[in-house]
Design a protein around this nucleic acid. Sequence first.
DNA 1: GTCGTAACTTGTCAACGTCAAGACTCGCGC
DNA 2: GCGCGAGTCTTGACGTTGACAAGTTACGAC
Lengths: 185, 185
Amino acid sequence: MPYHHGDLRRALLDTALAAIVEQGPVAISLRELARRAGVSHAAPTHHFRDKTGLLTAIATEGWSLLADALDAVTDRDFAELGVAYVVFATTHPAHFAVMRAPGLVRADDHGLVAAQQRAGASLGTEPDGAPRDRTTALAGWSLVHGLSSLLLEGMVAPDPGSDVESLARAVTGRLGRPLPGRNPR
Amino acid sequence: MPYHHGDLRRALLDTALAAIVEQGPVAISLRELARRAGVSHAAPTHHFRDKTGLLTAIATEGWSLLADALDAVTDRDFAELGVAYVVFATTHPAHFAVMRAPGLVRADDHGLVAAQQRAGASLGTEPDGAPRDRTTALAGWSLVHGLSSLLLEGMVAPDPGSDVESLARAVTGRLGRPLPGRNPR
DNA sequence: GTCGTAACTTGTCAACGTCAAGACTCGCGC
DNA sequence: GCGCGAGTCTTGACGTTGACAAGTTACGAC
């Protein structure tokens, strides 16, 4: 094992993500992550100042990946964006758990706020690029954020034989969509 | 200070709730709660086996209070239930933070599950007492759960001059109701 | 009144997060 | 090809925490 790890930062993030899936974001310990990565107990300090720093990095990466996933949706109807949101949450449970956990991250971190805003902007933009009506955007965001949370908390599960994607599609379909010519924004 | 506290269990819960508002549910320490309550560092153990036990008790109480709040809504239209949900979350931030935090509580705790189901049943019941369509109920629950979360995470705030209740009313109004006469809003 | 039981204390342990100081190694300037 | 600084990692230490064990005190039923 070389003295210089190569990419210890990435390795620690990946180890942390795996541990979070197993034990939740609260139960992880920096020392155990270091152990799993084969480095000394204080090595993480240099890459992420402290535990909050590590979790902030994970949350930032999460929001950024979510923004990427939303930007990749070609049919920018809200239903499709919403489905992408829920699919992201269930395929990146560790990221999403940290993103929505209260008091685990430095909420005023620059990179974190920027990544959050990028994701928010993607949700709050109409297919034609115009900003969505605030109430509509908020309702949509709430809906998919809440559904993702309920799924990850285990309070709701897709019907057997069905999957998360079709559940998300059914639920987002309940959102009152303003009809094309009839409603501003 | 008497040897027997009187109602240490309640005192610890209240102290914990206050501390959670200040520092978040993760940062609280059993020892500090004991200190604030004026008892020895091991006293909490006897009332709540461990830290998870305390948080489970808070979550249980939260779901139970929420169920009470929902049951107290006389106009059982979903919009009103939803407003009550969001109002509960913002007026009981400590409870709600624990209720929705991942991995902090014993999710299989009997009392907790029962309280959750009581709240869920209230949301999933039509004004006339009939069970609501599953997708509709889930959409509504997701919407208000998500909105509450976004508010408490500080990612969204009511417009200045407005308040949480009217914001919740506006947002729940965006939910398409599968009633005859199709125009929501 | 005594006695069982519940409530609380004191003492202890391993693990953790964080800090300070030192050791190693890489790569750039010369 | 060589020194040297900056970046990377280690070692060691400190205070705090959650949890456990064993002992002490008060309450209430009989």
